[in-house]
């Protein structure tokens, strides 16, 4: 009736589990197609809300893995994408809570050296630096909201799923985040113009 279970049996069981084809809800072809459509926007989103490219690299794989492990059928491509972005948002939030990292403030642009360069290149660089610094001053959720709504042009219903808020609240939250970012950008522009004026004198 009983059979002996030896250490080799345990090893055999583990080997069987390792060799078995892992069944995800998505097959490989569907995954590849979905990945091609979403990986770049997701990476950019992760790097924007975390403020760190290395973090984006790490969390990209993790986000797709968690999505693959979810036993759920998706209503639509948009629903699946919203869920993926929600996973990514939570991963960044968890990392933020664990390590208490803050987005690193970029160094102030050197006005004198900027003036010596070509004007258009300098202006573009200053604009980007201003935006990065301004985004770093926003709350993580505000950064996510603005990036999803305007840079990635996600509909409000999808943003609501991604950030775990009511669809009706997105408009108000977006309004506040936009006003805050615009104020920071405007004050930053004034400072940059003043710095340039001093450098010219």
């Amino acid at each position: 009736m009983f059979r002996d279970v030896t250490l080799s049996d345990v090893e055999r069981l583990q080997a069987q589990a390792e060799d078995a084809e892992v069944a995800f809800e998505m097959d490989e072809d569907s995954f590849r197609a979905f990945y091609e459509r979403t990986a770049r926007p997701l990476w950019v989103y992760l790097s924007r809300i975390s403020g760190d490219r290395q973090v984006a690299d790490d969390l990209l794989q993790e986000a797709y893995y968690r999505l693959l492990r979810v036993r759920q059928s998706w209503e639509s491509e948009s629903h699946r994408r919203a869920y993926l972005f929600r996973i990514a948002t939570n991963l960044v939030r968890d990392r933020y809570r664990r390590s208490h990292f803050e987005p690193v403030a970029l160094p102030e642009p050197d006005s004198a050296s900027m003036a010596s360069r070509e004007e258009s290149v300098a202006d573009a660089m200053v604009r980007r630096t201003d935006l990065q610094r301004a985004m770093a001053r926003l709350k993580p959720r505000e950064r996510a909201l603005l990036w999803l709504a305007y840079a990635q042009e996600h509909p409000h219903s999808e943003i609501a799923v991604t950030l775990g808020v009511r669809t009706g609240s997105v408009k108000l939250l977006l309004f506040r985040a936009r006003r805050r970012l615009a104020q920071i950008l405007r004050s930053s522009k004034i400072r940059t113009a003043e710095g340039r004026h001093r450098a010219q004198r």
């Binding site: 980007r128 201003d130 935006l131 305007y150 840079a151 970012l181 950008l185």
Partner: peptide, 9 residues
């Protein structure tokens, strides 16, 4: 202000 900066970025 905001959308212009975000598109550029």
């Amino acid at each position: 202000e905001v959308v212009g900066a975000l598109f550029d970025a």
